[in-house]
């Protein structure tokens, strides 16, 4: 009996492995937006610039220390999983996105999938961007096309195994990527809905202002409650009413414009780059974000580690 039984078991094991891999392969198929989903449309380039500013594209994709319209990439983005280097998204035909179709661009921003059909790492915040309206993304594409093409190529990401396997990002998406469009809340004002759209979608505030679990997913119960800086040292503040309770809507709007808190301190670090983007928006948009942020229920963030003792 021994040999036959063993062969059967072996067959079963092989079948299970094949089935398991098939499931893995199936559930990690990168999502796309087909060309057929894009109806005829005349893009609004001016709105594209607003989308560009609201989305903070320049913060990572602009060449470090250069003008915000020079999207040659290269900025290093450290993370617990390795270091990412922002790619060139200028309209250069070979090293940028100059030869991309509109559907490929929409697929990248809304689905986190590259033109070659691979997953992007979620350092590219499609976890938030997928809430963007398709028209906004098409306008953004038209705006980026008006910017100067740059030929530089950024370095390869430095990621250790298994984080360097792009297919595995499909598993991450399965767990943490809620691929649902933005739905306005009819009970709220137009300003609140616009603010919610900007804060949750393009603004991708939650990407830094929320704690993350060990797999890098946002802890949804503590969204916006702050946490350790994903890019390195320090702490990202809680932006729920737990901490911003004393800020009025106009204080939040003024902060987004100037980087200045009601106490007169002026923000530093990576938030400085965010303020440069927000300062480009209309006062109405900043006010809408303030209205929405002011409505966030107070939530306790993760406990802050005790401060290190003074050392000389």
């Amino acid at each position: 009996m021994g040999a036959r039984m063993l062969r059967k078991l072996l067959m079963l094991a092989v079948l299970a492995a094949v089935a398991g891999f098939a499931v893995y392969w199936f559930v990690t198929i990168p999502g796309t937006i087909p060309q057929s989903a894009l109806a005829a449309y005349t893009p609004n380039v001016a709105n594209g610039k607003t989308v560009f500013d609201a989305g903070g594209c320049a913060s990572c994709h602009a060449v470090p220390k250069e003008d915000r319209t020079l999207l040659g990439g290269g900025m290093a983005l450290p993370s617990p999983f390795g270091t990412f280097y922002a790619p060139n998204i200028s309209p250069h035909p070979t090293n940028g996105i100059g030869n991309w179709t509109e559907a490929q661009f929409a697929t990248a921003v809304l689905k986190g999938t590259s033109p070659s059909g691979e997953h992007y790492f979620p350092a590219f915040p499609y976890g938030s961007y997928h809430l963007a309206k398709l028209e906004d993304v098409r306008d953004l594409f038209a705006y980026i096309k008006t910017l100067p093409p740059l030929s530089g190529r950024s370095r390869e990401h430095e990621l250790p195994f298994p984080f360097n396997i792009r297919r595995n990002v499909g598993g991450w998406k399965l767990l943490f990527f809620a691929d649902k469009p933005f739905v306005p809340d009819p009970k709220q004002s137009a300003a609140w809905n616009r603010g919610s759209y900007l804060v949750n979608g393009l603004g991708h505030c939650a990407e830094c202002h929320s704690p993350r679990n060990p797999l890098g997913g946002i802890v949804s119960a503590q969204k916006f409650a702050g946490g350790p800086n994903p890019e390195g040292e320090g702490w990202v503040p809680n932006i729920t009413q737990k901490r911003l309770g004393s800020w009025r809507e106009k204080d939040i709007a003024y902060f987004l414009e100037t980087g200045e808190t009601p106490e007169g301190d002026t923000t530093g670090g990576i938030m400085t780059r965010v303020i440069k983007n927000m300062a480009q928006l209309s006062p109405e948009d900043r006010n809408a974000m303030a209205v929405y942020l002011k409505s966030l229920a107070p939530v306790d963030g993760p406990p802050r580690p005790p401060k290190k003792e003074t050392r000389s």
């Binding site: 923000t267 670090g269 400085t272």
Partner: peptide
């Protein structure tokens, strides 16, 4: 006035560290 705050932020961006 925003020019002053912008300059505060510019220096804090590169030369101040949050602990």
């Amino acid at each position: 006035l925003p020019a002053i705050g912008k300059q505060c932020g510019s220096c804090h961006e590169g030369f101040r560290v949050k602990t």
